[in-house]
Design a protein around this nucleic acid. Sequence first.
DNA 1: CACTTCAAGTTGTACTATACAACCAAGTGG
DNA 2: CCACTTGGTTGTATAGTACAACTTGAAGTG
Lengths: 144, 144
Amino acid sequence: MEADEAVETIQREMTAFARRARASAGRMHPELSLVSYTLLGHLEESGGCRATDLAAHYALDKSTVSRQVAALEQARLIERRLDPDDHRVQVLHLTEAGRRILAQVTDSRRAAFRERLADWPEEDLRRFAGYLARYNAWTPPGGD
Amino acid sequence: MEADEAVETIQREMTAFARRARASAGRMHPELSLVSYTLLGHLEESGGCRATDLAAHYALDKSTVSRQVAALEQARLIERRLDPDDHRVQVLHLTEAGRRILAQVTDSRRAAFRERLADWPEEDLRRFAGYLARYNAWTPPGGD
DNA sequence: CACTTCAAGTTGTACTATACAACCAAGTGG
DNA sequence: CCACTTGGTTGTATAGTACAACTTGAAGTG
């Protein structure tokens, strides 16, 4: 069956990609690990959120996020603002430096991707982007 | 520009995927980490190879591979055979147990993927698979 | 043949990301 | 007011990784 084979290919290729990304992400941007990068990215997209939100979004333990956040704060890339309504809550925001570094890393990542995708027809690019978004948007019946 | 946006989406989604895969792979199959899984997979595909080959293929340090291989051997999933022509070389082979576990994990991963892709039209599946394969097949001008 | 150089692997050490569990602090509801 | 919940931190353990130093075997060169 055609579809079955395609599923297998998707599985294999996504796995291969994940392994490689993991292996190389740290080397590309010593300033910002893949995790830190995605966390900063989420902060930018969301315009500020809580550590708990990050943990939920990325299926990470809150302790992990707590330490990542601590490191990012120490590096002055984000800042915490106490929520006046609920003093347990720290709303996280990008600092100017954070925004700058994020943009920088995004740029260099984008350049790498663009090189990699240079000879793709635009139509294929758009479809591929759509498939990926659709794939990632999927949420399982009961948690991730 | 449309294509630019698509590149950005691909970048973001691939990154998100890599992060999630890393975070969840270990939980899905405590018996076989993502790295071990890909190493076993490579051994199966290649029909046996050296540790150095694995390191080169996955851009891992040879020490890392050495330890992974040691663990896989201890778990009786692979075995080392001294190359009679070059006594420095250990050719790695899957054991029967290794082949079995690999098939098992592959199955369960495939099931998860299939669930995730259940409602995709076959045409989209095939195109997506093609894009991923094409993306991963790309090799950089000078290294990864 | 002895000497250097190279290649394959191992081991020591350190670091990062991670989880889990125990904890603290601040709201919430009886 | 007290129990419970929620947001977050800290202690501890583990996995995966890199880099550097080392061991062993092979290969080339005088």
